[in-house]
Design a binder for these strands. Structure first.
Lengths: 330, 330
DNA sequence: GCAGACTTGGAAACCGCTTTCCGGGGAGGT
DNA sequence: ACCTCCCCGGAAAGCGGTTTCCAAGTCTGC
């Protein structure tokens, strides 16, 4: 590999000068030398060793993003938003996927800490297990004590800046909208009980239903993905309206109904949450709660970079979008 | 930040010993000292500085993946496959998205080179512009001369190990299958002419049609995404069967037809390419050519890591999957 | 009981770059 | 003409690890 020393030698200048020319310093370098250095670097095909720069500068230009599952469009959209924001700041992005294993999340924070990344974004639902959350907090605290910055998209459980989708409120508003259409018997495809996002959406929905004086919805737990929705839909009783706590599950539920010859929305109404772009052309079009995912990702990065006391928690409201997967009852 | 020296001091051992204990060395360290070091590291919350390690070792445990667009499920699946493979090797992943700008791709290779990443994966179609490809090759050559490894998912145009989806053959086979259903008048939503993947699929399809002695398909160019498919579909003439060069475009086309009240497959048949998992529940179910995207991503990583002379080019066959978006003609 | 082979701990060089600290020379002021 | 002050180039000290090379101690075998 070509090193800065090679360049300096070829240009007949000192290391210091070469460094100043090539890697943005506050110090000026005379035009003549500057040209010599640039030419030498070009001829030799010099590429600065960023590991060395990071070490010497004590700061890196990399940020870390930890998501649950990149193939889930929810995370892809959030990650993309954050990555676009990072790109405008000239930051590189390291992406880790936990495949929904909270231990992996902790491990990633440790690793990203070791990388001395400038900021860490934890994207995705927290889990209800206080022990796990506690260990994650510890790891995060250690990282932040070393000067690291962090933010989270999800729930404010980590003591860091957080972009928090208004899951309860969004689900509640959806519930009111659906009740407004005349539905009275509901079911919730609730996902895993320990996932806070899933639990919040389920709870928000159920509470709103209760406030309206309607019978409590049937709650069916399952996985937080397409197959989870598919499986859960099979267990739904006589509800006229089914709320899947995310769009991907809703699509699974729709598939299950289709296979069984149950018509949506004629026989049963189905709603989801998130308004995943990739699914906007689904038939029937999904009623859902729209979340500005890309913006949320970008905002989280912003928060992390400007981290300040006290901790900022930004609620992001969802917008109920009624589409053809639900029908009005008589 | 806690450094190795802090740990060594606290444990009352030398730097060398502490290093050997904490960061896997071939050398043995006595149980007593080993325990002291481990305890000290734990108490202090030591995290090795990977930048320093990378510098000292001259090798990093990071790989880079460059994709066009993470929110496109095609790339998400490929990236995920590669990331899973990387995780089993204990490698970290740096992801860059070019947002379909070839210049960005070149810039990323330079940056990843500067990071001295162990391997670079270029995921996605090459472009037809030889000047751009040439500059990318140059950058890649420079990287590889410094000991970097590289592989590509796409076309064998870079002189590196390549996982090449059999776009022409897959499209040709699809064409034959569709012709076998009795279709004779075809249109191709061909995407951008300069994208090699799009062009190959289009060409493979057209060639097969010609070989069958059928009239040449109408070719409509446009963007390679959902909206591109939507727009292109509007310009299709009297074809009975439309081939969109990827699934996402096909979904856009289906949306366009739906809006116009054109029934699929009754009035027109539609096929895509890729078999995107997220779209498997689409209605009508999409006829397509299945590509094992995750495996391809994983395989590309393998190739990169084991890079050897001569360059390996692996063709990956697609499998035609007939679903309800196409119909048999009388 | 002792030579020689192994083991294990530590000192120090080194990885490639940044940046502080010096010093020399030219510009500007009087 | 002389003295400051400023500007710019270079030497060298880190940044936080890894690893080579020594030296001292421990084991073995005869």
């Amino acid at each position: 590999m070509v090193t800065l020393e090679d360049v300096a030698r070829q240009a007949g200048v000192s290391l210091a000068t070469a460094s100043r020319v090539l890697n943005g310093s506050t110090r000026q370098v005379g035009a003549a030398l500057r040209a010599r250095v640039e030419r030498a670097a070009d001829e030799l095909g010099y590429r600065a060793n960023i590991a060395a720069q990071t070490l010497a500068r004590g700061a890196s230009n990399v940020i870390g993003i930890v998501v649950h599952d990149l193939t889930d469009p929810y995370f892809a959209a959030l990650a993309d938003g954050a990555m676009r924001a990072a790109a405008t700041e000239g930051l590189l992005v390291m992406v880790g996927t936990t495949h929904r294993d909270p231990e992996q999340e902790i491990a990633y924070v440790a690793t990203l800490n070791a990388q001395r990344v400038r900021a860490v974004l934890l994207v995705g639902s927290r889990v209800a297990d206080p022990a796990v959350t506690g260990r994650l907090r510890d790891e995060l605290t250690r990282y932040r004590q070393g000067g690291g910055r962090a933010a989270c998209v999800g729930q404010d459980l980590l003591g860091v800046d957080t972009v928090a989708p208004a899951n309860r409120e969004g689900a509640a508003e959806l519930a009111r909208a659906l009740a407004g259409l005349g539905h009275t018997r509901f079911a919730v495809l609730a996902g895993p009980p320990h996932l806070v996002t899933a639990a919040d959406r389920c709870a928000g929905f159920a509470e709103a239903i209760e406030e309206l004086g309607l019978p409590a919805p049937q709650v069916v737990h399952g996985a937080f993905d397409r197959d989870g929705g598919y499986a859960a839909a099979q267990q739904v009783g006589d509800a006229t309206c089914v709320f899947a706590v995310n769009d991907v599950m809703a699509v699974g539920a729709l598939a299950a109904y289709r296979e069984r010859g149950v018509r949506v929305p004629e026989d049963v109404s189905v709603a989801g949450f998130d308004d995943i772009v990739t699914l906007r052309d689904h038939v029937p079009a999904l009623t859902t709660v729209r979340l500005p995912l890309q913006d949320m990702g970008a905002r989280a990065l912003e928060l992390a970079l400007n981290e300040a006391e006290p901790v900022v928690v930004e609620q992001v409201a969802g917008e109920v979008v009624l589409r053809e997967s639900v029908r009005r009852m008589t």
